[in-house]
Simulated assay, not measured.
Amino acid sequence: MTLLDYTALFIFVASWVGYTQFSRVKAKTTPCLSRCLHQTRIIWMRHVFDHDIRVSDASMLSNLDRHVAFFASSTMLVLAGVLTLFTQVDNVSAMLSAIPYATDKGPVMIQIKLSVLVVIFVMAFFQFTWSMRQYGFVNIMMGAAPFEEGTTKQHLMDYAKQMAVVQDQAGHAYNYGLRSYYFALAALCWFFHPLLFIFSSLAVVYILYSREFKSRALEAIKAGVNNLENDFSDSFPQ
């Protein structure tokens, strides 16, 4: 590996870890998708107490779980494909040789880059499966949720918040898994040139930031949450 390769790999890791920590800290003081969705989940869990039959709520949770299961199974297929490429290093090297600006076409470098992809998708798989388990936990908590009759509003509110917290953790794990896919696409650029690897890593950070903190979807969700909070303020203690 050249100095440029080491630099590109360092920027890649720093971008991934740095943005993860940055988004966590900034979300505490700035409206973002994760923060607004947390409030929306609390409101959703409040609705659970409004009806005795909760089939619709369980169905919506199952729909979310199916999305995560799709990515978990897809990740296993991608991993199988990447591992297969270890037996086709010569063919990969020949393919890269046909690209004028591709660098580091040797077998060792190709194996190193494939190893990075394997690590990324293994991490994604663990995140997706953990998300699936936590959605199952929410289903169990929903089944054990008390009825509104004979229960204080404060107790209902506390239980709704706890269900929302578990659902939040499932959503975060799903988000981290998807983020692994984003950075895996950036890692693919390393096969062509380290400078392209650096550019794509920074581009992924910009895309994630713009969608999390500056998207139109955020504005719509934030406006909806504010309206719902006002509607529920008289019925549920804050």
Rank of each mutant, 00 (worst) to 15 (best):
F236R: 04
C189I: 11
D158F: 10
F213W: 08
I53P: 05
F49G: 12
A223W: 11
F213V: 12
F147E: 10
A173N: 15
T20I: 14
V89S: 03
T151G: 06
L83Q: 00
V17R: 12
L96C: 02
C36H: 13
A14T: 12
F192N: 05
A102L: 08
L96I: 01
V119R: 02
L156E: 00
Q162K: 03
C189P: 08
I11W: 07
A102N: 06
K105L: 02
V48W: 01
V48D: 13
N226C: 13
I221C: 11
Q169N: 09
L196T: 01
A14G: 09
N175C: 11
D231T: 00
Q169G: 09
K214R: 07
K113F: 09
S74G: 00
M95G: 13
C36R: 14
F126P: 10
H67L: 12
A170P: 08
S34Y: 10
I110N: 02
F137M: 15
P107S: 03
D158G: 05
T151S: 06
S210H: 08
S233I: 13
K26H: 09
R211W: 11
V165H: 15
S15Y: 00
T87C: 04
R211A: 15
A94F: 05
T40K: 15
Y6W: 04
Y101T: 15
F232H: 13
W16Q: 06
F12G: 00
H51N: 04
I112C: 01
S34R: 12
L79Q: 01
M132T: 14
V204S: 00
K222N: 07
F49A: 09
K105N: 07
F232Y: 14
I99L: 12
L33Y: 07
R54P: 15
I207D: 06
L156M: 03
H47D: 15
T151Y: 07
R46S: 13
M157D: 07
A160Q: 08
L37P: 12
V48T: 06
M109F: 06
M123P: 01
G18Q: 08
S74E: 04
G150V: 02
L228K: 15
Q169P: 10
M45D: 13
F22R: 09
D50T: 15
Y6T: 02
R35L: 12
S59F: 07
D231R: 09
R54G: 14
I99M: 08
Y19F: 04
F128W: 02
H51W: 00
V17I: 13
A220I: 15
E149D: 14
M1C: 08
I120C: 02
T2R: 05
S15R: 04
Q127C: 12
H155N: 15
S59G: 04
H47E: 13
D90V: 04
L228D: 10
R66K: 14
C32F: 02
T75I: 03
K161H: 06
T20F: 13
G106T: 05
Y181E: 00
P237C: 00
N230L: 07
F22K: 07
F86G: 09
Y206L: 07
F137G: 14
R41S: 14
R179G: 09
G106C: 13
N226D: 15
Y19M: 05
V78W: 11
N227Y: 11
D90P: 11
N175T: 01
P107Q: 07
V225R: 03
L117D: 05
V205M: 10
S15L: 03
M60H: 10
I53S: 09
S235R: 06
T29Y: 14
V13Y: 03
Q167G: 03
I99D: 03
D50P: 11
G150P: 06
A223F: 11
